[in-house]
Amino acid sequence: MLRGVTNVAGHVAQGDEIRLAGLEKSFATPRGPLHAVRGVDVAIARGETVALLGPNGAGKSTTIDMLLGLAAPDRGKVSLFGMTPGDAVDRGAIGAMLQTGALIHDLSVREIVAMAGSLYPRPMGIDEVLDVTGIGELAERRTQRLSGGETQRVRFAIALVSDPDVLVLDEPTVAMDVESRNAFWATMREFAARGTTVIFATHYLEEADAFADRVVLMASGQVVADGPPTEIKGMVGSRTIRATLPGADREALAALAGVSSADLRGEAIVLVCSDSDVAIRALLAAHPGARDIEITGAGLEEAFLQLTATDRPGQTPVP
C-alpha cells in the first residue's frame, strides 16, 4: 500500500524544478537531539500545487524553513529552479506566508503591503494585491486593529506582493473563519492557474484533497507517501469502529468484510475499516450483542500510525 517517493519531475530539466535532496535537520533540546527532518527527497515541477500533509511534529515547518533558506540543513541540498534559496529570495522569486507571524504595528494595511512591496524588484500594484486578496475595505485600517483572520489575509497579500514564481504557505488558514478560508483558496487557485508554483503545509486532509495536484505525506520527519490526493485520501481516510463486545475473537473480527485490522482492549474492540459501512453491517450480523458502538473518521495521527505500522510486515496496526 505504501508507495515510494515519486520522482514526478524526473524528466524535467533540473533548472526548472524545485528539488529537496536528502534533507536532514536536527535540533538540540534539553532531552537530547530532536531529528525534525530525516531524509526528505522531493522534486516539484514548475506550476505544480503541492500539499505537505502531516500531523504536528511531522517536520513540515522545518522542511519549509530549509526550502526558504531560513534554516540550514544538516545534510542535503535545496535548489529552486537551479538557484540556492538565498539567490531565489534575492531575486524576489519566493513569496511566503510563515506559520507563526503577526504584523508590525502602527502602519495601515495599505502601508504595510506597500512597505513589503518596496523591497522587491518588480512588485505587483498595491491596489491589485489588495483587490485579489479581498482586503480592499481594510486598506486604511491600522494593523493592530485587525482580527486573526484579517491578519492572515494581509499576510497573504504580503506573500503575493512580489508576484513570486513560488508561493510557500505554512498552515495558511489557521485562524481563518470559513468565509475567509474559502476566499483564500479561491485566490490561491487563481495564482496557481497563472502558473505560480504553490507549496503549502497543512494538517487538514480536506484542504490537501481539495486544493493540491499532489500530496506529499510526512510523518516523523520523513516522506511516507507521495501521490495524487485521491490516492492519499484512500490511504489515510479510513474509519474506526469501537464497540463493547465481551469474549470476542480477534482473528474472527479481523476477517469481517470491510475490516482491515482488529484489536482487543479488555471488553472493547477496535476495528480499523477500509469500508466502515460494510464493516458495521458485518459486525452486527455476526455479533448482535455488540453495544456502545462508535464510528469515527481516523485522525491524521491515527492514519499515520497505520501507514508507518504497515511498513513493518507481520505487525498488526494499532490505531
Binding site: R91, A96, G101, A116, S162
Partner: peptide, 12 residues
Amino acid sequence: VGWNRQLRITPL
C-alpha cells in the same frame, strides 16, 4: 511577531 523572518525572505 516574526516580522524579522518575513523580512529575511525578501531581498532586503
